[in-house]
Each structure stands twice: as structure tokens, then as C-alpha cells.
Amino acid sequence: MSLEQFQDRNVAEQNYFHVDIPDYPTTGWGKVKRAASRTFKGELFVGLWVVFREMIKFDIHTVQYPKEKLPVGPRYRAVHEMQRLFESGTERCIGCGLCEKICISNCIRMETKLDENSRKLVTDYTINLGRCIFCGYCAEVCPELAIVHGPRYENVSDQRAHFTDFSDMLTPIDAAISGTQKEFDGFGAVTPHEDERVKTTPLAY
């Protein structure tokens, strides 16, 4: 499908056509004729040929899941990850509480306090994944790109509390310092041309 076709929203006129289906026969003779034509048309053999052709072509589409995996799109919204700042490795989360506020299923719970540098410190942060609907609002609202959705969709544990803790979601500090933490380019992330689009704040008023 070309892009023009795709952008033409007038779908009713471009891709649809009427299939020529004859009316059901009403007379007895008509029914006999229909049965005869269906019998001798050989459509059953067309069906046989189609599946046989696929078998000898051997064009297999199976993904052998645990060994092979399909790539996950960048905007895929799976289990959350808490990011760190590059180089310093400090947690990005500033404890502003916006994600807790916006979460529509009320599943983020956090406690904060001021640390010795009068900086807000998150002491307790959990997401109840049993209630999370993976809407992505928390990632979108976060001003620091601290909470993001990662690509991790395989979650196995005997308790779902096991992967909801802040420390589990947090990037390991060595990954952040060595720069291997993957920057999030999905929901709420900075888009490539952000510099041109930002307007300077008029400070005059």
C-alpha cells in the first residue's frame, strides 16, 4: 500500500468492491443446478492444491519463542523501568509525585522525604502491576524521563509483588555510569527535533 493510499481517508471508494454473489435459488430446479455446479466445479480441489502448495513451498513463519523473539517496538508499554542520569548515576526521579497523581488505576504508591542536602528523596516507590493497565500516563507525565516503559514483557514469579519494587525497576548503577542504559524513545520521550520546537519563555512578564 502506497503512502497516498494510506493517507486517503476516503476508504469507501478506493479498496472496496462488491463481490458477485448470486441470489439463493428459490425453485427446486435451481437448487439442483446449484448443487450440481458446486459438485463439479472442483473448488474442493482448489483448496487441496492451495494447502499442498504451501506445504511444498515450506515458507515457515513460526517464531520459536524462547529461542527466537520478535523485536519489540520502541513505544511498547511493558513493565516500567526507573532510569538514572548518565555519568553521575543519580536517580532521575525527583519525587515530584506527578506519576502517582495521574495514575488512573491508582497503583503507584510513593513516600518521599527531604535528604540531608534538602533534596527530595524517594524512600518507597512501588507499582502494583496487578492493577496497572499499562496506559503509559505515568511515563508521559514524568518531567524527568525517570519512569519509562521498558520492553520487558516476560514476568515470572510466584508473587507479583516481586517485580514492582523501585529497586527492581531501577537501572543498575554500573549500567548508567558505563552509558549502557538505553534511552527511552517511546511515550513522553524527547523527540529528535525538540530544540527547534521549544519556544523561549518570555521573561518580561
Binding site: 494447502v51 504451501e54 506445504m55
Partner: peptide, 13 residues
């Protein structure tokens, strides 16, 4: 296996 191949799958592997 036969059904799988005809449906472009691999079947039990």
C-alpha cells in the same frame, strides 16, 4: 506436522 506445514507453521519442535 502435516497440518503445521500446510499452515506455514513448524509444529512440535
Amino acid at each position: 506436522k502435516v497440518l503445521a506445514f500446510m499452515q506455514r507453521r513448524l509444529g512440535p519442535m
